[in-house]
């Protein structure tokens, strides 16, 4: 049904989004926790910077990434000299763009769920002999886990659909940075290529739906009916 070329596009997209999520999720959780619980000067600045990719035109985000990760950019220069790596025009760069674009959505979802954790339960755990870390691991984290999952699903859906920042940052290179949305865009440029567009768009819809269904299933089984209602992720 799908050609080898199309399978390669799907595999690339999944790899880009998978790596983006694996790296972004811990970062998003740390930022969400900091913003939900931290009291420090510059907190609203951190909040604003985290949200920038949500409100900026994606092409601007892509251009800023290009400035930062380019050979002469602060991050790119350091990566080049320290590790001899460049992410420009590479799938790793696409993963960075996908992660950055997904970050604000993930932080928002996770932060809401951390805010919703009853801190008095954490106090109860402390009086029962749990130190700070154990309280975090056995009370806070399990209680906000549906929100973490929601953030992951939102982030994954956002990253798999990422287009503007990616094409600006790492261009449109077959088998390297031509992810699903960029492949659809490319197919659209060729007259009479409707079949390919339909198939790629279909894959795109199927992937997003699969992520949603998987997360609903995970929430339902993870909570095991603890409170008699099925949890909804979104």
């Amino acid at each position: 049904m799908l050609t080898a070329e199309e399978w390669a596009i799907v595999a690339l997209s999944l790899r880009v989004s998978g790596v983006a999520m694996a790296v972004t999720l811990p970062l998003a959780f740390a930022l969400a926790y900091l913003l939900a619980r931290g009291r420090f000067p510059g907190r609203s600045l951190v909040d604003a910077v985290v949200h920038l990719p949500l409100v900026l035109p994606p092409v601007v985000t892509g251009w800023l990434l290009l400035l930062a990760f380019g050979r002469n950019g602060p991050v790119g220069g350091w990566l080049e000299s320290a590790f001899g790596v460049s992410v420009i025009f590479r799938w790793t760069g696409a993963a960075i763009a996908a992660g950055i674009m997904a970050l604000p959505l993930m932080v928002r979802a996770i932060r809401l769920s951390i805010d919703a954790v009853d801190r008095r339960l954490e106090g109860a755990a402390r009086t029962l002999g749990a130190g700070r870390w154990r309280t975090f691991a056995t009370i806070t984290l399990p209680l906000c886990w549906p929100g973490v999952l929601a953030g992951l699903v939102l982030g994954f859906a956002r990253s798999i659909g990422e287009f503007g920042a990616t094409i600006t940052f790492v261009s449109n290179i077959p088998d390297e940075t031509r992810t699903l949305p960029i492949a659809i865009y490319t197919a659209l440029q060729i007259p009479g290529n409707d079949g390919a567009v339909w198939r790629l768009a279909g894959i795109s819809v199927a992937l997003s739906l699969a992520a949603l269904v998987l997360s609903e299933w995970l929430v339902r089984h993870g909570r095991d009916g603890q409170d008699g209602r099925a949890g909804h992720v979104l």
């Binding site: 009853d118 008095r120 339960l121 109860a124 755990a125 402390r126 009086t127 029962l128 002999g129 749990a130 130190g131 009370i139 399990p142 209680l143 909570r223 603890q226 409170d227």
Partner: peptide, 17 residues
């Protein structure tokens, strides 16, 4: 966590999960 004082709260505060 090292005081060994049991605390019973007004609302029970059982861990819901």
């Amino acid at each position: 966590d090292r005081r060994r004082i049991g605390y019973v709260f007004q609302d029970g505060r059982l861990f819901p999960h």
